[in-house]
Amino acid sequence: MTQSHNDPQNKPDEAIAVALSYDETPASLAKVTASGKGEVAEQILQLAFSRGVKVRTDSDLAQILSEIEVDCPIPLEAFAAVSEILSYLYRCQEK
């Protein structure tokens, strides 16, 4: 997830990037595996692009997920949006 807009908590136009991982076991929840703002966000994005990882821009979701500690599951408020993203990624992998 990425964000790039004016936000009172961030510098103007400061990027936010959040990486998620998902274990396909039935009881598993998606969790935050990396998160950063500014230069760290840019590094996360560069790593994703260089490895062919799909990136989605969603400023609201990026803001929510950036508050979650790394290695923690996503909050209930983000389930619907993250489920939609995972569904999109699975469809991309099938092609």
Rank of each mutant, 00 (worst) to 15 (best):
M1N: 01
M1D: 03
T2M: 04
S4H: 05
S4E: 14
H5E: 09
H5P: 06
D7T: 01
N10Q: 10
D13K: 08
I16N: 01
I16S: 04
V18C: 00
A19S: 11
L20C: 05
L20Y: 03
Y22N: 08
E24P: 13
T25K: 04
T25F: 03
T25D: 13
A27S: 10
K31W: 03
V32M: 05
V32Q: 00
T33K: 05
T33R: 03
G36P: 15
G36L: 05
G38H: 08
V40P: 09
V40A: 02
V40W: 04
A41T: 04
E42P: 06
I44H: 03
I44S: 09
I44Q: 00
A48H: 07
F49C: 13
S50R: 11
S50K: 08
V53C: 08
K54L: 12
K54V: 13
R56A: 15
T57Q: 14
S59C: 05
D60M: 07
I64W: 00
I64E: 05
S66E: 09
E67I: 02
E67M: 14
E67K: 12
V70T: 12
I74F: 01
A80D: 15
V82D: 04
V82Q: 03
E84P: 00
I85C: 00
I85P: 12
L86A: 04
Y88F: 14
L89I: 09
Y90W: 03
R91L: 10
E94I: 06
E94V: 09
K95F: 10
